[in-house]
């Protein structure tokens, strides 16, 4: 029930999560462990990518196994723009000359636009199917882009592409890890606000209604396809934006950002945190990076243990971390 205790408890947990993530880099500075700032930034960026996927997967019930495509496209936009800006070679000269950019606002906008541009044809084809076929078609498209990136030598092919200096943002020294974290955190906050607005809008209600029963939705005069396509495109844009930030965090982009492992990781984040929950992706990303860091320090086979944890979540805590702490999920 929305008005019951569960909701206020979820809100409390959301606030705690947001505060904890924000506090982490400051703790890191106090402990003189700057590496932890990078961990926090990684959490914020992965959470952002999963917020994007959560629109399609959580609200729309569209299990996209190809969101790495958008994550990687965002990354490559950042990498390619930066490399042209660095070399001062024009990317293209018609209809106007454009030689990349090392400014994040330009890169972000381009990452989102290119992601939407790619998501629309992918969505238009794959949304004609559902269930396991949808999963497989999105996967197939993502793998096509993955192999294209591997075989395209102009931007490093399999070796990937380095970003020599982190791209800039007006008024912010992005080379400073804390400033860059705050920038990512701010973007995440805006994306969460957008997710919340969508979830509570009429569009969001129709999207969730379509997840439950598309015939009933059609019977009240709403075409499920169009709504889903829009949701898929918005979802791709946010994940693409996260990809651009991720490339800037690592100052490196490679085809691995496009691979199906990455798509799976994004789904895992959402399941760990809580499907369709506002802060599910944040909880999932925090847990994931913590596991990766803690377990990864003990054994290189840490993903085996992640698998066990995931199994536990699916069997015993289907609402993910948020569901476990805040009560029954609304998702059904």
């Amino acid at each position: 029930m929305r008005d019951g205790q569960a909701m206020s408890r979820e809100t409390l947990i959301n606030i705690l999560l947001a505060a904890a993530l924000l506090a982490l880099p400051f703790v890191a500075i106090a402990m003189e462990e700057p590496f932890y700032i990078t961990l926090a930034t990684r959490m914020a960026i992965l959470a952002l990518a999963a917020v994007g996927l959560n629109i399609a997967l959580g609200l729309g019930g569209l299990i996209s196994f190809g969101h790495a495509a958008f994550f990687g496209i965002g990354g490559y936009v950042a990498g390619i723009f930066a490399s042209h800006a660095f070399n001062m070679e024009p990317m293209f000269s018609a209809p106007f000359e454009f030689s990349g950019s090392d400014q994040m606002p330009v890169i972000w906008l381009a990452a989102m636009l290119v992601s939407v541009f790619v998501a629309i044809p992918i969505g238009a084809i794959s949304l004609r199917t559902s269930g396991v076929y949808f999963i497989m078609i999105t996967l197939a498209f993502a793998q096509m882009i993955y192999y294209f990136a591997i075989s395209w030598p102009a931007y490093g092919g399999e070796d990937g592409l380095s970003i020599i200096t982190r791209n800039g943002f007006p008024g912010v020294n992005t080379a400073n890890p804390l400033s860059f974290f705050l920038l990512c955190y701010g973007v995440l906050a805006v994306a969460l606000l957008m997710f919340w607005l969508i979830q509570n809008s009429r569009f969001g209600a129709a999207l969730q209604a379509g997840r439950q029963n598309e015939q009933r939705l059609a019977a009240v005069g709403i075409a499920p396809f169009r709504i889903r396509l829009v949701a898929f495109a918005i979802s791709a844009a946010i994940t693409g934006l996260a990809g651009a930030l991720f490339a800037d965090l690592n100052r490196f982009v490679s085809p691995s950002m496009l691979s199906w492992h990455m798509s799976g990781e994004l789904i895992v984040l959402i399941i760990l945190g809580g499907t369709a929950r506002l802060f599910g992706p944040v909880a999932g990303a925090v847990l994931f990076v913590l596991f990766e860091f803690a377990l990864g320090g003990i054994t290189e086979h840490w993903q085996f243990f992640l698998g066990l944890i995931l199994l536990g979540v699916v069997l015993f805590a289907r609402g993910g971390l948020i569901g476990l702490v805040a009560g029954k999920a609304r998702h059904g």
Binding site: R2, R202, A205, Q208, A209, Q212, R216, V220, G221
Partner: peptide, 20 residues
Amino acid sequence: PEGRRCFPNLTVHENLVAAA
């Protein structure tokens, strides 16, 4: 429809505004 078939996990208000 027969058997009512509301959208179970939407609130009453959401069920109504989604269709409006």
